[in-house]
Computed example of a mutant assay.
Amino acid sequence: MRAMVMEKIGAPLRMMERPDPMPGEDELLVRVEACAVCRTDLHVLDGDLSDPKLPLIPGHEIVGIVEAVGKKVSPKIIGRRVGVPWLGHSCGECPFCLTGQENLCDAPLFTGYTRDGGFATHTVADADFAFDLDEEADPVALAPLMCAGLIGWRSLKQAGDAKRIGLYGFGAAAHIICQVCRWQGREVYAFSRPGDDTAQRFALSLGAKWAGNSDQPPPVLLDAAIIFAPVGALVPAALKAVRKGGRVVCGGIHMSDIPPMPYRLLWEERSIMSVANLTRQDAREFFPIAREAMVTTHTSVYPLAQANVAIADLRAGRVSGAAVLKP
Rank of each mutant, 00 (worst) to 15 (best):
P75Y: 06
Q184H: 06
P260L: 14
V5G: 00
D20Y: 08
H175P: 13
H89K: 10
V5P: 00
P259L: 07
T123R: 09
I226H: 03
V248K: 05
S274G: 15
K326D: 03
I57H: 08
R284W: 03
S90F: 10
W86Y: 03
P19M: 06
I311W: 01
N103R: 10
A307V: 06
C181T: 04
L156V: 04
L142R: 07
L87F: 01
G59F: 03
A316G: 01
K8C: 09
L145H: 07
M146C: 09
L133M: 15
A36G: 15
E136P: 00
F286K: 07
K240T: 10
S50M: 11
S74V: 06
K76L: 14
D196E: 09
M273D: 13
D51F: 08
F129M: 02
G100R: 14
S50R: 15
A233F: 05
D41P: 09
Y263W: 11
I78R: 13
G171W: 01
T279E: 12
P52V: 06
L133I: 09
A172N: 12
Q306Y: 00
L87S: 04
S274A: 15
E285F: 09
V231L: 10
Q306S: 14
L13E: 01
V30F: 00
C181W: 00
G59K: 08
A310T: 06
G185M: 12
E25W: 01
A141R: 14
W267V: 12
R115P: 06
F131M: 13
C97M: 06
D26C: 05
M6S: 06
L104F: 11
